[in-house]
Amino acid sequence: MIFEVLSIILLILLCSISIYTDYKKGLIYNRVLLIIGIPLIVLNFVSIFIDRPEKLTKYILLVLISIGISIFLYMFKIWAGGDFKLFSVIILGMPYSYVLKSINDLSYIFIVLLFSFSFGYIFLIGESLVHMIKEKRSAKSIVLSSLVEFKNYLKIYVCILFFNHITDTIYSALFQNQIPVWVQVGLNIGFIVLIRKLDILKYKSVMITFLLADLILGAFSFEMFSDYRVYVTWGIIIFILMTRAMVQKYNYKEIKYTELKKGMILSTVSSISLANEKKLKFCRLSDESLDSRLAQEEVEDILIFCSQNEKYNNITIVKKIPFALFLSLATLIVIIGGNYFEFESF
Rank of each mutant, 00 (worst) to 15 (best):
I238M: 14
M246A: 07
K204R: 09
F239I: 14
M242S: 14
I238W: 04
F220W: 14
V206Q: 05
M246Y: 10
M242T: 07
I216C: 07
V230Y: 15
Y231C: 00
S205L: 14
R244G: 15
M224G: 01
S226L: 14
I237W: 06
M246V: 05
D214S: 01
D214L: 02
T209G: 00
G218F: 13
T233C: 05
I208A: 02
R244W: 05
I240A: 09
T209D: 00
D199S: 13
F239R: 10
S205K: 14
I236W: 08
V232C: 06
A213H: 04
I238P: 01
I200R: 09
L241V: 04
L241D: 07
E223M: 06
W234N: 07
Y252V: 08
A219S: 15
V206R: 07
F239L: 15
V230R: 02
K202H: 09
I238F: 13
A245N: 15
F225L: 15
Y203C: 01
M207G: 03
I208Y: 07
G235E: 13
G235H: 09
D227L: 06
K202A: 05
K253A: 12
S221V: 03
I216R: 04
V247H: 06
Y250W: 14
A213T: 14
R229N: 12
Y250K: 11
A245L: 00
R244L: 11
E223L: 11
M246D: 03
W234F: 13
M246S: 07
D227E: 06
R244D: 11
S221E: 12
A219M: 05
E223C: 02
F225M: 05
I238K: 03
Y203T: 01
F220E: 10
T243W: 02
I238S: 06
F220G: 03
I240P: 00
V206F: 15
Y252P: 05
E223I: 02
T243M: 15
A219E: 09
I240W: 01
Y203G: 02
Y228L: 08
E223G: 08
Y231N: 05
S221D: 15
L212Y: 05
F220A: 03
M207A: 01
Y228P: 03
A245W: 01
T243K: 01
Q248K: 14
K253D: 11
V232S: 07
D214P: 01
R244T: 11
L211S: 08
S221W: 12
M242L: 12
T243P: 00
V232D: 05
